[in-house]
């Protein structure tokens, strides 16, 4: 995987380049915005890691330049600023992801791989957890390879839970995933959908109620009846 790294700090740039090389990436490292634009003109990269604070021109200008020229490679922004307005602006300008410094090298590698997979259309539409499978394109849910019929909201609820299994989701997060923004939500609407989903999954313990907070999905097979 051929990656362009744009980072002006020599210590960080060198360390990231070496670290990513260790992880199977082929990294070309430049330290200025002008060098990045030039490199993109002469070589094809599968992704770019772009620092925002460059000495000659802002990383955001490099980003805008890329998108104006029709380059569709995934761009991951590296930033030392945690200003949410600026991050939103860069995502709106065409960045695909961002990471705040200091970061974990493994996380950077994983994000790059995910970005490249998505770009190449290799992302799977199927989310699995144990014997449970959910296809986000066909909207088919299977348990032990047997299809389960779910309503639209039950499907969205299960999708939100299966995306981060084992993690506690607040009821407000789940409501935002299941209901449209303009829908008036009854106070017990989420509980009704959770209850229906439990019945259809055939195991009440898979979706665990975290009292006063929300719900989480355990791996089907754990704590089965």
């Amino acid at each position: 995987m051929h990656i362009l790294l744009v980072e002006d700090d020599a210590m960080l740039g060198q360390a990231v380049a070496l670290g990513l090389n260790d992880r199977g990436f082929n990294v070309a490292w430049v330290q200025t915005g002008a060098a990045a634009i030039s490199a993109l003109q002469h070589h094809a990269y599968q992704a770019m890691i772009l620092d925002l604070g460059l000495p000659d021109l802002e990383g955001s200008r490099v980003l805008i330049n890329c998108r104006k020229r029709g380059l569709r490679l995934p761009i991951l922004i590296l930033t030392a600023r945690d200003n949410s307005h600026e991050i939103v602006q860069q995502l709106d300008n065409g960045a695909d992801d961002y990471l705040t410094k200091p970061f974990d090298l493994n996380e950077l590698g994983a994000r790059l791989r995910a970005l490249i997979r998505r770009q190449q259309g290799h992302t799977s539409a199927t989310l699995s957890l144990g014997e449970l499978q959910l296809n986000t394109e066909t909207r088919v849910v299977q348990l032990q390879q047997q299809p389960i019929s779910l309503s639209r909201r039950e499907f969205e609820l299960l999708k939100a839970l299966i995306l981060q299994p084992g993690r506690v989701h607040s009821r407000d997060q789940l409501e935002a995933s299941v209901f449209d923004q303009d829908t008036d939500i009854e106070s017990n609407a989420l509980e009704v959908h959770v209850s229906n989903l439990r019945k259809k999954l055939g195991n009440k313990e898979w979706i665990e109620t975290i009292r006063g907070i929300g719900y989480r999905l355990k791996q089907p097979g754990q704590g089965a009846q």
């Binding site: 700090d9 210590m11 960080l12 360390a15 990231v16 670290g19 604070g53 030392a80 705040t100 410094k101 200091p102 970061f103 974990d104 090298l105």
Partner: peptide, 10 residues
């Protein structure tokens, strides 16, 4: 953050 990031990555 930048030198700390370099230190951590190294």
């Amino acid at each position: 953050r930048t030198p700390l990031a370099a230190l951590k990555v190294r």
